[in-house]
Design a protein around this nucleic acid. Sequence first.
DNA 1: TGAATATGCTGCAAATTTGCAGGATGATTT
DNA 2: AAATCATCCTGCAAATTTGCAGCATATTCA
Lengths: 300, 300
Amino acid sequence: MFDWDDLRVFLAVARARKVAPAARTLGIDGTTIARRLGRLEKALDAQLFEVGVGDRTLTARGRELLAHAETAESAALAALEEVKGQEHRLSGQVRLSVAEGFGTWVLAPGMGDFNRRHPGIRLDLVTASGFLNPSNREADMAVMLARPQRGRLTVRRLGDYRLHLYASPAYLERVGRPGKPADLRDCTLIGYVPEFIFSPELDYLDEVEPGLEANLRSTSIIMQQRMIAEGAGIGVLPDFIGRRDPALMPLMTDRVEITRSFWLVMQGDMRRLARIVAVADWLQERIDTLKPIDAARQAR
Amino acid sequence: MFDWDDLRVFLAVARARKVAPAARTLGIDGTTIARRLGRLEKALDAQLFEVGVGDRTLTARGRELLAHAETAESAALAALEEVKGQEHRLSGQVRLSVAEGFGTWVLAPGMGDFNRRHPGIRLDLVTASGFLNPSNREADMAVMLARPQRGRLTVRRLGDYRLHLYASPAYLERVGRPGKPADLRDCTLIGYVPEFIFSPELDYLDEVEPGLEANLRSTSIIMQQRMIAEGAGIGVLPDFIGRRDPALMPLMTDRVEITRSFWLVMQGDMRRLARIVAVADWLQERIDTLKPIDAARQAR
DNA sequence: TGAATATGCTGCAAATTTGCAGGATGATTT
DNA sequence: AAATCATCCTGCAAATTTGCAGCATATTCA
């Protein structure tokens, strides 16, 4: 294989039609240009420029090479453009892995604000299928609902959130209002599909009352919320979802309360990048906006 | 501007996931690899690989670069091919990725002919596990049964083929001849394993009659053909398979007919290489030989 | 036509790049 | 648990690449 970098000098000479001007634009000595050109011709076993004196004009093979060299050039330029210096600029792409409910109810409403603040950063929300896979680098950072232990990851606690039982007024009217956790055994319960509970922290029902199992199940908390709101049954929801939906009523708030934490997880080496910091700060802010919701509940 | 040649070592490391194996494939010392990688990272001012121990996994920035580096690579490879020495001679290797049934029944019978016509070209048939992976260069070109959308690939339609229901005479004698698609619900059906249907275009049974599911399943169309021929049941087969096996009888040809297309896919840069053109032409010919089969069916 | 300027090639020294050996660390096998 | 293997980083010498100066030749402009 020839030296790919020689394509760069080939392009310069093909465009300048002379070695010396090409040398000036590249900032390399003309001698070097000539030698690398010769090396390339030898490696390709082809005459790229006409031999005669005067301007260097391309041979047929040279023109063939030109097309490919230009492709390579645009690839290299694009690479430079996209990758270079992203580390220090407040721009670029950040891929944030979040749980569906958190993304929908906490982050999505603030995305416009983030974009106004950091127009250069493209923030992608990818819904987590469970956990951030650090080896695959599916995401640059992740907000997780359970603290990960393994791996060389940077972990930071962003704050707490509470969960309560929720139901719709229609359901309560139809089947009555349960007074204690044990009453839930006779209710239609809505929860996660057990096989897809990737962390014991998500098995809320069992924590409310051991042995409790959901009758209507979904891997999606949003679908669960919809089911509860439609009066299908009772389920556990984070307050940042349940308190914002007027169709939902919290139940047994004094007897059943679950507390969990948000964890910000990222690759250690990204911690200092400007755009990562910007996103992390914004996340902290978003989560801080949840506190009033919590306080409102306490006041009731 | 960074040294374009460093993209080559970057690609090697990204693929080998380690410096040492990459060094072996490139024939350069591992130290040099590491140093040039470091130089590239400095030039791009970006971390390309994970810092920790173990395998070198790409960072987000590295993955961005990978895409561009691959473009540059295919340009460089094409340049080498086209320009180098005896570039226009019909020789070299072509790796063609094909679906199993197509390879077995359409291409394999004509391989001898191809070899006589182009003794200098070594044509490898690799069975596709679904799609052509352009990044790994597993194949130079591919005949696909579904049109790929993504990537910078050259796509060309080679022609159409039809599929019908097939069964063996023995099976029909034993359980009777179904007269309409709905009758198939009572038959033993043979088809693909749903989990491995990588493209909706392959879900033939559902197209014959919605909701139809196979009882006997295989990821291999050849095995399906064998099952049908042995009288195990009824299945959908391309005519280029079914019509050539005397043990198979087409069913309901006037009521159930599925049409699909063959797509020729290749790296854009290779399009013009002589040996690629030779293979593409031959593929077109092979597919054109299918038309009489189709016509024969129509005449019946 | 002739002078002025520019191009491009050949030696030589400087700078850079490369490979090798040795040793620390981690992974794999017995 | 020990041993073996492989990976990968750190100095140092060799090899290659690069730049500069000088000169022959070509091009340009008056």
